[in-house]
Design a protein around this nucleic acid. Structure first.
Lengths: 205, 205
DNA sequence: TAAACTATCCTGTAAAAACAGGATATTTCA
DNA sequence: TGAAATATCCTGTTTTTACAGGATAGTTTA
């Protein structure tokens, strides 16, 4: 039986490229594509692919969130993360959210096929660099932030002072300061500069 | 006569995808690919393609720098920027450095072909979003930083205080402060947090 | 070559963040 | 339900940045 494949990626050229690449494969049935999380969920109302190839960085809903939602609503669908980033935390988040594997965009066709076939038969597959990233203890985990902390973080990054943030959120400036302290603890950063840098690289901004 | 095409991109899947996509096109001759700037320059020692498709974000030499170098050494080669970023400053930099056009990865096959054909006949082509970006006055230009300013910027982002940076670079802390002031002026940022955020998004970190 | 840019250094003040060490409601979830 | 997590608030002190307003020597480049 053919593997029914669906792909979610905001880069149309990547979609067309992969489609063209897999067209000659007889055991893969191309079901279609979406360029964002919302259309993907809409598609799944009426169709059930075996495997979804999912970019993790997309405008709007991230692949990480999308993966979680799809897995809750449709536990039978296998998901493969497809990304340019080999950051440990991203790979981990996808696996935690139920993905069957993770393939980097600098992998080759063979690796992609291997991952799809593994997913199809309920096995998991990590591309070399992704597995490497997981093994790397230097690469710190991304901290888990609360909703409020994320709000404060973004306002800090926008250049506001504690007082301005306080006015903006209708809370006391000392509360903002507490959130700031907790953010720095979670990021293990010495000062804002380091924190904003880490937050940016971690995809929070 | 066929258009001899070469591609530079650090994502192998993108290369294979585009190759597969353009394989059926009779008027395009696929010359090969490189996954970084250095290999591209090495290839050009012995070969001369008509058009190079060039990713702008690559490990090591950026597409922007590579474009400049290729254009100096081989003015006859036309270069097309190929990227996920539709930031005004990136598009501008590529055009300034002699690129014939700029195509976003969320463009379709048709657009890519149009751009290649335009470049082939010494015309220029911008994909819709790239042209849109150029017209957008909100999107600020990236500041031009001196070598020293870049050094200081990175040390600030790493979490060092002015005194620590001073010790690191063997200069006075007041000098570091001056660089800091100039950096903030150039980024038009109110404080470090905003500056690091902008610097990160602008690709300086 | 003269103007523009770059890198270096200085003094001083005001504002903000970092650090320490609390407290208390409310929500979440096992 | 009861512990854990979250969000809120407070008083201090010390360190660091932000801002103002300089100066000087070397290096590019038009």
């Amino acid at each position: 039986m053919k593997t029914r494949l669906f792909i979610v990626d905001d880069h149309y050229l990547v979609i067309e490229g992969i489609r063209s690449l897999l067209q000659q494969e007889d055991d893969i049935e191309w079901m279609g594509h979406a360029t964002n999380g919302e259309s993907c969920l809409a598609f799944l109302q009426n169709h059930e692919p075996d495997v979804i190839l999912m970019d993790i960085s997309m405008p709007g809903m991230s692949g990480i969130d999308l993966c979680k939602m799809v897995k809750i609503k449709f536990p039978g669908i296998r998901i493969l993360g497809l990304s340019t980033f080999d950051q440990k935390s991203f790979v981990e988040k996808m696996i935690e959210n139920g993905a069957s594997g993770y393939v980097l965009k600098n992998a080759g066709k063979e690796e992609l096929l291997k991952a799809i076939m593994a997913a199809k038969s309920f096995k998991s597959y990590l591309s070399f660099d992704a597995a490497q990233a997981l093994r790397n203890p230097n690469d710190k985990e991304l901290p888990v932030l609360t909703r409020r902390e994320k709000e404060v973080l973004e306002l800090i990054a926008s250049g506001m002072t504690n007082q301005e943030i306080a006015d903006n959120l209708f809370i006391s400036s000392t509360t903002v300061d507490t959130h700031r302290k907790n953010l720095m603890l979670k990021f293990e950063a010495k000062n804002v500069a380091a924190m904003i840098n880490l937050a940016g690289k971690g995809g929070f901004l």
